[in-house]
Computed example of a mutant assay.
Amino acid sequence: MTQPIDSAATDAAVNALFATISRLVELSDGMRLRQGAAGTRLVFTGLPTASLNIVSVGPDADLGEVDAFAKEMSAMGAPWSIQSRGEVDSALLELAARHGRTSSSTLPLLIWDAELLPTVPASVPEGTTVREVRGDEAEVYAAALAAGFGMPKEVADLFSLPALLDAPDMTAFVLDLNGAAVATGFNIITGDQVGLYNGSVPPQHRGNGYYRALVAARLRHAAASGARYAFTQNTPMSRPLYESLGFQLAETWTYLTSAS
Score class of each variant (00 low, 15 high):
Asn15Ala: 11
Thr2Leu: 07
Asp29Thr: 10
Gly36Leu: 04
Gly64Trp: 06
Asp29Cys: 07
Pro162Phe: 12
Arg220Gly: 06
Asn53Phe: 11
Gly185Lys: 13
Tyr141Ser: 10
Ser225Asp: 02
Asp62Gln: 07
Ala8Tyr: 10
Gln35Val: 12
Ala9Gly: 07
Thr106Ser: 09
Met151Ile: 15
Tyr211Lys: 03
Ala75Tyr: 01
Arg23Glu: 13
Leu145Lys: 07
Trp112Leu: 03
Arg228His: 06
Val133Ser: 15
Met237Cys: 08
Ser84Trp: 07
Ser28Tyr: 09
Pro240Trp: 01
Val133Gln: 14
Pro48Asn: 03
Glu94Leu: 14
Leu47Ala: 09
Pro48Tyr: 01
Leu158Met: 12
Gly185Tyr: 13
Pro152Ala: 01
Arg41Met: 03
Gly100Glu: 01
Ile82Phe: 13
Arg23Leu: 15
Glu137Gly: 11
Thr10Ile: 05
Ala230Gln: 06
Ala222Lys: 13
Gln35Pro: 06
Leu241Trp: 06
Thr119Gly: 04
Leu165Gly: 13
Arg98Trp: 02
Pro121Ala: 02
Thr2His: 08
His99Ile: 09
Arg206Phe: 12
Trp112Arg: 02
Gly226Gln: 00
Phe247Cys: 02
Ala144Glu: 08
Leu24Ala: 02
Ile54Asn: 04
Tyr255His: 13
Ala138Val: 06
Met76Leu: 15
Thr40Cys: 12
Asn15Lys: 05
Ala75Pro: 06
Arg218Lys: 12
Pro168Thr: 00
Val133Leu: 14
Thr49Leu: 15
Gly207His: 07
Glu65Asp: 06
Asn53Ala: 07
Gly36Gln: 02
Leu63Pro: 15
Ala138Arg: 12
Met151Asn: 11
Thr184Pro: 14
Asp157Ile: 05
Glu72Leu: 15
Leu219Ala: 04
Leu110Phe: 04
Leu109Pro: 03
His99Pro: 13
Phe231Cys: 03
Gly150Phe: 11
Phe44Lys: 00
Ser105Asn: 07
Arg228Gly: 01
Ala16Lys: 01
Ala213Leu: 09
Gly100Tyr: 03
Leu24Ser: 03
Arg131His: 15
Tyr210Val: 01
Leu245Glu: 04
Val66Ala: 15
Trp80Gln: 01
Gly36Val: 04
Asp166Ala: 11
Met1Val: 02
Pro48Ala: 02
Ala143Tyr: 08
Val133Thr: 14
Met31Asn: 12
Ala114Gln: 00
Gln193Thr: 05
Leu117Asn: 04
